[in-house]
Amino acid sequence: MSAFVPGARVRIAATSSGPLDGLRFAVKDLIDVAGVVTGGGNPDWLATHAEAARHAPSVAALFAAGASVDGKTITDELAYSLEGVNEHYGTPLNPRWPHALPGGSSSGSASAVASGEVDFALGTDTGGSVRVPAAFCGLWGIRPTHDAVSTEGVLPFAPCFDTVGWFARSGELLARVADVLLAGTAPADVPPHLTRCAEAFEARAANEPDDAATLTSLAASVGAHDEISVFDGDAARWLHCYQQLQDDAIRASLGGWIDATSPRFGPAIASRFARLALLDDGEVARCRVLRSTLAARIDALVSQSVIVLPTTPLALIEKNASDDRIGAFYRDALTMDAIAALAGLPQVTVPLADERDRPLALSFIGPRGSDRALIALVRHLFSSIE
């Protein structure tokens, strides 16, 4: 299945010469490209919105650096999924593991890079929408520090967590794109120590014990010998806090349009949007206070150590996976992804491998603003795979 939105493929040449000369990139269909309607993965959103008047700043920066757009890519509907399935436009191919889902919601962007159709691609990441497809498709990927890359010209999902991230087949290109998109941001360093997130490795072990052992060994091989309980024995509280705040932000961003339009959603997506009606404002307010406490805990941890964790609780989700398996994946993945999201921190995921044919991915979370230093650290640790 194609990674790109239906219709004529959007191709626009670079506006200048620069460090990304000659490279081609794809743009998730949540991000504005001038003269093109940002469709959001939903035909009713497409039908009720006009062409973008200007490029999103992230797209404009890449044009100015010498890169050219070579397609807009399919997204899960309005970004509300981690699977990579779109009821209206189809499920982009996972090129290396075609029996499995590509991961979402930046599914088309990951597929296009993994297949070699483009050199790199923009996605968005709120609760894992770059990190999960990067892991599932065997790519380098980054969720940057919140607000480090402008989200102007990006369809708002949950702005308190939304970020513009990107995919590449190498750490070297991930870093080159970072130098463009993060230009002008105040850089921060990473601490010298690495510490494993105990609960994330336990979640992977509960699903795939052999993979958990392999990932633990790989983490130890680059210096992550120690581990810490990040959630302090209450992972459910972290997930609840994240979901309450995400859904409240989605209600504020998209609720009015949904009420006015009654859009067609795929069944799984429709049930998630229906959940917004159940929000309790008092509980949301309590979670806003709790977020400050949880973020402070994470900030304190990453001031001392880079946090290392499996990027996903499963290597892959098969196309015929049961609802129970998908539901358990969501629970574990959103909990793990909430670490960086709640504190607004950068997270880099790196593809690894052993003798078995399935994706293995480790992630590294650093302090706010340490994006480029974090990429440099991960590239150094895994220089042999570049």
Rank of each mutant, 00 (worst) to 15 (best):
R264Y: 15
R54H: 10
R272M: 05
A198Y: 06
P209C: 10
G7T: 15
F265E: 05
A376W: 15
A34I: 11
G255R: 05
G233Y: 12
I339L: 14
A341L: 03
A47N: 13
A321V: 04
A112W: 02
G103R: 01
A148V: 10
S111A: 08
P98E: 12
D147M: 03
L279D: 10
I385P: 02
P191G: 02
A203M: 14
P43D: 00
N207R: 10
H146F: 15
D162M: 13
A110E: 14
K319H: 07
T15L: 09
G369E: 01
G282C: 00
S17E: 11
S81M: 07
A376C: 14
W166S: 06
T15S: 03
H99P: 01
A14M: 08
S305R: 08
S363F: 11
A8L: 10
A338M: 11
G128W: 01
Q246L: 08
D354H: 14
G84L: 00
F329I: 10
E386Q: 15
A376E: 11
A343N: 03
N86D: 13
A186P: 13
A343R: 13
S105A: 12
F157C: 10
G165Q: 02
V289N: 12
I250Y: 01
V222Q: 06
D281P: 02
F231A: 04
A376I: 05
N42K: 01
L181I: 05
A183M: 12
P156Y: 07
E199V: 00
V154N: 00
